[in-house]
Amino acid sequence: MKDIFANLYNKVVNFFHQTDEKQANTKNDACNRLKLVLMQDRTNLTPAIMDRMRKELIELLSKYMELDRELLDLSFEHEDEQMALMLSIPVVRAKNEDEINEILAKEDEERKKLEELMNSESSEGDEENSVDNEASDDENQEQTDSEEENSEEGEEQDVKPELTDKEKAFSDEEEENSEDDSDDDEDDEADEEIDNDPTKTKKEKKKEKFFKKKKEEGASQEG
């Protein structure tokens, strides 16, 4: 007799619990989509440009530490009249000095080569051919310049506070170049489709797990 009642009770409880779980959580969808679209509205950055900015940032920062590229989180926050760019990327491993120096040395070499190339070309005065090349060389140089500036201070682990200036430099460049760099964009799009919703939700899950793990470990990795 007791069993029958217990059974019945459980069934009823389960019935009500099921209806609870079935409720879709559309509110979070709305919030997340809104935040993303407002970020674009407020900054005048299109999704494609945002995507490119992310990639360039990752590229830049990866020189100095090993990062979890998948989990980069970029957002803008409104505080009074100021807009702040918030960047958070989990650091997988800090690179040691040798590694960093190696990369930087390589870069310097490349830059020198480019400069030499440019000088030799301009001295030859072959204007018709060199116009296009020069333009792209300029871009590269600008980029390496800005990266160099950051290299002196970039060995610190704390990424967030330094980024705003870099950010501006990049987005400015971006706007100038976005029209003639259609080739690059296509490549980028093929690499990753960050804007797609399905991948995003996966990423978020991964992210949550990651941060839980982090909390458990304590911030020991950072130091």
Binding site: Q23, A24, N25, K27, N28, A30, L34, E79
Partner: peptide
Amino acid sequence: LIEQNDMMSVEDVCEILS
């Protein structure tokens, strides 16, 4: 609807628009 998580809450909207 807010209770059911099917509508943004007052806090959500305030946070988004600050």
